[in-house]
Amino acid sequence: MDLAVIIQVLDSSIRLSTPLLLACLAGLFSERAGIFDIGLEGKMLISAFASAAFAFTTGNVWIGLMAGIGASLALSAIHGLASITFRGNQLISGVALNFLASGLTVLIAQNWFKQGGRTPTIPEEQRFQDITLPFADALRDVPVFGPIYSDLISGHSALAYIAFLMVPLTWWVLFRTRFGLRLRAVGEAPDAVDTAGVSVIGLRFAAVGTCGVLCGIAGAYLATSLQAGFVKEMTAGRGYIALAALIFAKWRPWYALMACLLFGFLQAVALRFQNIRLGDFVIPVQLMEALPYILTVVILAGFVGKAIPPRAGGEPYVKER
């Protein structure tokens, strides 16, 4: 295996990690504020459809991105209404929203475009373009560093760079701002936040909204950057992998980056190599596909350090008991 192949696999890992990372950070905001969200998958899916549909019809990919974020926010609003305002079951609400997105996207896509529940292919120039970083071409011939910089780090779409920049930003917001402190507090001890005169409901809606925006970007990345349009069920369980990554990372931003890169790498390897032969032993592709889920169960089981969720997670806040 030479450097070129390694670079290719790593490059594809970054592409596959990007939507996971965005969704994972989205879940991080929501769950840190005490709102469980298994609807990441649905929000990404509906955003993927909306962004592809609007990018195709208007010819402007940024309008597509906005539409995607809008659609994702609409689902967030329902989730907020159900789990914050009406103190419903957050898990059930998430499940319902996943189905809602799965059904509505195909229903509307079929109604608008009549192509069997998909959008038409978006032409190259109407999608997010790959950005070539400065000096990428000039440095290509430098040994080792050249290919890494110009093929691996350079040449991704704007959304991918946004995703990776979101990691330090999330860390800064959560751990270095007043808003972040309150947001984390509301996920651990909402009554304390309430006693301090800060609105629990407001903070939780802010968190759920942030989650919606990030899932929206993730969906737009899938449909207008990674692929050229929306196809039925195109998120293919990425929302659940992101959820797995979030647990794997124990609800911390930098670890989320590592977990998403790892899971993206597993996907890339499974895509490229199918069955991997190690001497006499063959690792089947199905094992590679299942590995993120298996790893998450192992982490959840607490055999490799314990994953402890925010304390008030999943509990609706009732002002007076």
Binding site: A82, L107, Q110
Partner: peptide
Amino acid sequence: SIPTQLIIVIQALVILFTGALDNMVRM
């Protein structure tokens, strides 16, 4: 021209209203 996915939408709405938004009806 209604695809079978309509059922998934109905299913989602039933789950949403009976399981998550039940307090909206109950209150």
